[in-house]
Design a protein around this nucleic acid. Sequence first.
RNA 1: UCCUCGAUAGCUCAGUCGGUAGAGCGGCGGACUGUUAAUCCGUAGGUCCUUGGUUCGAGCCCAAGUCGAGGAGCCA
Length: 466
Amino acid sequence: MELISVKAALGGAIPSGTKVEVRGWVRTRRDSKAGISFVNVHDGSSQDPVQVVAPSTLPNYQDGVLKLTAGASVIARGTLVQSQGKGQAMEIQADEVQVIGLVDDPDHYPITPKQHSLEFLREQAHLRVRTNTFGAVARVRHHAAQAIHRFFHEEGFFWVNTPIITASDAEGAGQMFRVSTLDLSNLPRTEAGKIDFSKDFFGKEAYLTVSGQLNVEAYCLALSKVYTFGPTFRAENSNTTRHLAEFWMIEPEIAFADLNDDANLAERFLKYVFKATLNERMDDLKFFEERVQKGVIERLEKFVNSPFERLDYGAAIEILKRSGKKFEFAPEWGKDLQTEHERYLTEEHVGRPVVVMNYPEGIKAFYMRMNDDGKTVAAMDVLAPGIGEIIGGSQREERLDLLDARLRKMGLDPAHYGWYRDLRRYGSVPHAGFGLGFERLIVYLCGLQNIRDAIPYPRVPGWAQF
RNA sequence: UCCUCGAUAGCUCAGUCGGUAGAGCGGCGGACUGUUAAUCCGUAGGUCCUUGGUUCGAGCCCAAGUCGAGGAGCCA
């Protein structure tokens, strides 16, 4: 008797006639008066369930097998055989179906074999992973994460675990969650009446990180090729299909590199991860193709096989102006590209991924490197058909005087950036990197509409259940 | 945060002009069949989001609130 996964049972590598055991959860049960029941069992290892054929001669047929409903857990032992029915190659002719856990209230069990709305399933986050859709998302998510680590490892990058808690209020990438052990109902005060954070856990104000970039830059200027991949927090009151309060971000950083190196890295990176997902999870992608978004596989295949177009921001604005398209927001030099602009560029004008480079300094962060024209910075966005911006990155300002000038121009005090400025004083080198929201990548891979379906337990304003 | 839309059975939804609450799926019972989200018959199942108002009478009209969705802003 060999314990096997459902995936292995269906995989064809195990010869017919082998005695096997599978463990999992019931998806459906169909009874035949010929004296058998068909129980579809899934264990998460594959998109498809295995069909367990349970004869009515089993001792627990009446008060066991016939009590099975969607969601019940079982251990089935029997012979793996070629199926007599259509719809599956292999099935398990059961000698024993052990009922492990029944569903208490089958009439209220929320996961039925019909299509549920994704909104409803979000409120059942602990059970939604039992559905085809969320099982598939979970598997794709795992394979994408593995592919990301594998890509960087193979290219000689080191994974750096930057801090989750930060006492620096200088990251400037958005609203932060405060971390404190102070008693909110009895706050210590200074003589001036302000909250006395010197009494707080870290002796000063602390927050959850909004980006590991600044920290990983330091490691870049020693290890040369590094990346972060970890949880990230934004306390913005964003209620959209693209924002989470807690998400996972990937941020590579490369030394002795400029913006072109950065764009090349982004292109290799995305293609590697997409290719790996196509290779490793085609079963789930086919499900998304059928049930979630038509064309998602072709979109990925085209992405993998198309060279990225490079486009200067200024040229992009000109293209948009001359497009003859009616945009809700008129394109104008000095303003950021709207989603409608990005979609036009990548979907209609070029028809494949585009890297837009060298944006006006006024709309980009302080750490981005000033170009020689004095008007633009070495920033880039990778735009993908069907979604728009998927990666944002830049070459970092490695010249101390220019960094200080830019900080001051943006109303920031260079004194607050002591250790970050040190990196420009001690063996500074040109370096570059980019940031990618992992869940946005998952949305794109799976053809989802809402980022809340791309993470197991989404956290958004007003919602932190489970 | 702003704009728009929505909330009716476990789920997905219908509900006409304001007049006693409906279907499909799921559950339960039965029939039938190596079945495939099986099929067929029967059956149970309701705080119509909450509060207030209008009315002889409100799922339906009005007001406020709560929650959800989509879009915008911000962004990854």
